[in-house]
Amino acid sequence: MSLQVFSERGHEPLVRFAEQVFGHLPRSDQRRRACAYLHGLLATPGRKTVSAMSAAADVPSIAPHSMRQFVNASSWDWRPARAELARWAAERMPVEAWGLKVAVVAKRGVHSPGVHRRFVPSAGRSLNCQVALGLFLVSRTEAIPVDWALLLPDAWADDPHRRSRARIPSNAAVPMEQAALDLVDAQISGGGLGAVPVVADLSACTGARQLVRGLGLRRRDFVVALRPQGGTPPGARARGSGPLRHGAGRAVPQAGPPSAPALPPYRYFSLPGRRPTRTWMTSMTRRHATDLRLLAGLDEQAARAVSRLGSGFGLLDFEGRSYPGWHHHMTMVSAAYAFSRLEPRLGPVRSGPGPDPHALDGV
């Protein structure tokens, strides 16, 4: 695919972007490596290996071993960078929803954090892979990843030695629905973008119904596609509720036990002409059916973004074996993708000399 460097004057826009997103890094050498890594993701054709990206950056002081050290061994916190990336992106796009999307990353080995063999519905077969959940800012034309969770199977969650070797904290092993709620809690504040709904097609995930309950308890508006489950809403059997009733415009109250917080009503709808047919659930009982279907359609933007991240931005190319390293790499991948999609496009990408290695010294 054709990538963009966005300026005929050189790398100034990329340097300014790196200054904003990674300005929290305490050392100037870390900030230089962040900028070089971004340039490598944008300028390197084919696989984004550290060796290939270092060659593309062509900065003598940033050799492959220092790039690997920066990503895999360094202890810098990725969360401030992701929060700043979300702010940067929100200023440049008309955000209509927060999107949740699963990304499956095929792997050959067994040592990368979270790698395991599982059946992947989208591929129709079992794959040796990592499974990640991304949180996206979504408009009608774009989906920008701003946060990630790595989903750990039991083989990793129940093996302290394996987790220790990969530097995986004990609280990282949570079900998909809790990981999704953690992403929502971390990124969505009480105002501003907190008012836009959460949109997700998680019909292939077993925890989607627990997710919508968690969103309901948080009073977050949502539009979520559910996995078929015999026609009952989440918790219906435990509460003795009646069967699931389909069709936008029919609100179904959620009555919990007397001691539990009252959940908002919800409604169900489907997207005409889509195959396979999915049942969507929403908390927005007063929104017109057309609006709800437009919101559900935003999930396709997140799906396209995951595909682009894999084909041109290094989502599939992390080579390390540490959990922090994976998060560092995914932060860089997300930032490179956001820069590529949202900066003005003023020229073709160039390999060769990257940004001035001292451009970030004063940050």
Rank of each mutant, 00 (worst) to 15 (best):
A149M: 08
E142N: 14
D182Q: 09
H161Q: 15
G134V: 11
A180P: 09
V184E: 15
L150M: 14
R140W: 06
P175D: 12
W156I: 00
A132I: 12
W148F: 05
S164G: 08
Q130K: 05
D159Q: 08
L151S: 04
M176L: 15
R167G: 01
R165K: 11
P160W: 05
V146K: 03
S164T: 12
A172V: 05
C129W: 04
N128H: 10
D147Q: 03
A149S: 14
P175H: 06
R162T: 03
R165W: 00
F136M: 11
P153A: 06
C129F: 03
I144E: 14
P153Y: 02
I144A: 09
T141Q: 05
R167A: 13
S164R: 08
S164M: 03
R162F: 00
A157E: 08
P169D: 06
G134T: 12
D159Y: 01
D158G: 05
A180Y: 08
Q130H: 04
G134D: 08
A179T: 11
L152F: 07
V131G: 02
D147V: 11
N171Y: 06
A143S: 09
N128A: 11
N128F: 08
V146T: 12
A166S: 11
A155S: 15
A173C: 15
V131H: 03
L181F: 00
N128K: 13
L183P: 06
D147H: 04
L150I: 12
S170L: 13
A180H: 03
